[in-house]
Design a protein around this nucleic acid. Structure first.
Lengths: 104, 104
DNA sequence: TTCAACGCCTAGTGTCGCTAGGTATAACTT
DNA sequence: AAGTTATACCTAGCGACACTAGGCGTTGAA
């Protein structure tokens, strides 16, 4: 469970790469050092929601081998949102750190 | 919103002090540097839940001046749970940090 | 040819904490 | 004396979030 930080994780993972859903799951697993292994039922609806909100744009791609993929990229709005959400996470995490006792 | 970390925050705030609900709200506000200002509707049900789970024990106290208060303290089980939840938070936060880009 | 991996999707559900309300006592103002 | 604010506790109901559990179809390997 990503506890309200799913959108930030998705936006940060896509970054400048333009990934498709399945690859996003793998990228999150890899980048998080195995901490997060999100089910498809989590990410697909989230991608749709972020696209509807104008933070992501998708297009269908037909690779040479393999089946069609829906590929997502950040919009300008998405990039701005990522900056905000990163700051929001830092603020949130520092608040929790203060209460739980700093990372000593 | 504490996004799934409310219990850890409550256990850590109570710590060794034995606080009552209203004081817990103020302590969280103070210790978090103003990040978190939790409504009563959040903490009272949570305290009841944690007591039911055996992590907290409460008793009613009549101070010299003022009205009766219900004071909560950690049980042994609560202390153990706090250790676990602190570790859980550190693990979670490091995972998010990795994905969002480390705190540089 | 059958099985796993790839790849997309959604309805329903459970968890969580907040909203919005209630009750009551004590202290401070006017 | 009366009204207001701060203290102090409580709960029903709701909305946000992401997970479960299912479905569909394609590609490559055993």
């Amino acid at each position: 469970m990503l506890k309200g930080h799913l959108d930030a994780v998705l936006l940060a993972t896509i970054g400048d790469e333009a990934l498709h859903g399945y690859a996003i799951i793998e990228a999150i697993r890899a980048r998080s050092g195995g901490h997060f292994d999100l089910p498809e039922g989590t990410i697909y609806p989230a991608l749709h929601r972020l696209e509807l909100a104008g933070l992501l744009a998708s297009r269908w791609v037909q690779p040479d081998g393999g089946r069609k993929r829906r590929v997502y990229a950040l919009t300008d709005s998405g990039r701005r949102s990522l900056v905000e959400r990163r700051a929001g996470w830092r603020s949130f995490a520092s608040g929790i750190d203060l209460v739980l006792g700093a990372r000593t």
